[in-house]
Design a binder for these strands. Structure first.
Length: 203
DNA sequence: CAGTGTCT
DNA sequence: ACAT
């Protein structure tokens, strides 16, 4: 694993090719075990439209959305606690986060063909001093970075399998999103698509 | 407003 | 990019 960010864009530290192929394969295998215990679902937004990504979580908390709004929950919507965050994922946080505290939540987002994520802030956590760490697996995704308020100019970068992004400091509350997926661009996932993991300290 | 549609 |  590398230690220095490949580049920094608007305060987002981007580690290109952070995970080797074998590490990515191992992580996907670990995530399949998580999915057996916590099947992915498509959350509803408060606006009434479902998100195009499918998601699940691991850790003490999972991120959830319905007509009531966004929140962290202690359990999967079907009832059980969220599974533990895999060690392979924890190792990435330990190496790049720069903090000794362990993350509470690993949100697992699945982007199929045509899926995207609108521009948003990560602001459902209690303390924004903790960074957010993002891991990309599978197909390339066009990641867009905006500003600390809605609107204004944005910059985009393609993230590919094995890339890691750290959002901390001034970038912690920066708007960001995913505009599109190059479906089938990676062979990591047999059925194609992109998986993004986001690690957070919730409380 | 973590979505979607429309226009530049 | 921006209105909603």
């Amino acid at each position: 694993m590398d230690k220095d960010a490949t580049l920094t864009l608007r305060g987002f530290e981007i580690y290109k090719g952070f995970l080797q192929s074998a590490e990515q394969t191992r992580m996907v295998s670990d995530l399949r075990e998580v999915m057996k215990l916590a099947p992915p679902f498509s959350p509803q937004t408060s606006y009434g439209k479902p998100m195009s990504v499918r998601m699940t979580s691991a850790g003490r908390y999972g991120w959830y959305s319905d007509q009531t709004g966004y929140r962290y929950t202690r359990t999967h919507p079907s009832g059980p606690d969220w599974p533990a965050i895999p060690e392979s994922v924890m190792q990435v946080w330990q190496t790049v986060s720069g903090v000794s505290r362990v993350p509470d939540c690993c949100l697992i987002n699945f982007y199929g063909e045509g899926a995207r994520m609108g521009m948003h802030q990560d602001k459902d956590e209690a303390d924004f001093r903790w960074p957010v760490v993002s891991i990309s697996l599978g197909d390339d995704g066009l990641f867009r970075i905006g500003n600390n308020e809605r609107g204004g100019k944005t910059e985009s970068i393609w993230l590919s399998s094995g890339d890691v992004v750290v959002m901390g400091g001034d970038a912690r509350l920066t708007y960001h999103g995913v505009d599109r997926i190059r479906f089938g661009s990676s062979a990591l996932l047999p059925k194609g698509g992109r998986v993004n993991l986001t690690l957070r300290v919730v409380d």
